[in-house]
Computed example of a mutant assay.
Amino acid sequence: MARNPVARDAVLDAFEELLIDVGERAATLDAVAKRAGVSKGGLLYHFPNKEALIAAVLERLDRLAVEDLALMAEAAEGAAAYFIRSSLWSDSPMDRSFVAATRLAEVAHEEARRRFAAIQQQWLDLIAADVGTAMAKAVLYMGDGLYFNAMWESGTTGDGRGRHGDIEELLAAVERLRD
């Protein structure tokens, strides 16, 4: 019998939410089952252990990163501007996946760290193709700083509306860096 993808996604979403809200240690199998509204047996049907859940979260991150990198590569405004504009919390699947995986990296989960490094390198490569290698890290750090400061101020429920002026200032700085 085929596994129900809706139930599987609900379990994975619940695990992601718990990672974001309470961290890796509190995201137990029992807590995930409760949050997903399934029995523990239902959870175990889709994910036999916590490592399988972690692997699925990281696979989701990879898939979403590939989609985002494609948008970044195709952005008419350029990869640097796309990166900065997309560096505010929007409660997108990519945002949730990114923060959930960050919570894994915080507890020294080596595979999460490896995947973050790979994604970051791909971002740097695209940004470097747009603004040059010397400026790529500056743009990356601008976007990261914007993202983390907005998260610090409003958390995962904020929309970053107060940061749109910051985005325009950073984009103007990127244009000056291009010269």
Rank of each mutant, 00 (worst) to 15 (best):
A2I: 08
N4D: 13
D9V: 05
A10L: 06
A27Q: 07
A27F: 00
R35P: 06
A36W: 00
G42A: 00
H46W: 03
P48F: 05
P48C: 00
N49V: 04
A52G: 01
A56P: 00
V57Q: 13
L58N: 02
R60T: 14
L64W: 01
A75E: 10
A76S: 15
A76P: 12
A80F: 02
Y82F: 13
I84V: 15
D91N: 07
E106T: 00
A108N: 14
A108Q: 12
H109N: 13
A112E: 07
A112V: 07
A112G: 07
R113T: 13
R114Q: 13
I119F: 03
Q120H: 13
Q121D: 09
W123Y: 12
L124H: 06
L124W: 01
D125T: 12
D125S: 10
A128C: 05
A128T: 10
V131E: 04
T133K: 12
T133E: 09
M135D: 15
Y141L: 14
M142K: 11
Y147N: 10
Y147V: 11
F148Q: 15
G160I: 00
G162V: 06
G162C: 05
D166N: 12
I167K: 14
I167M: 11
I167F: 14
E168P: 06
E169G: 15
E169W: 15
L170D: 11
L171T: 14
L171W: 13
V174K: 11
L177K: 13
R178M: 04
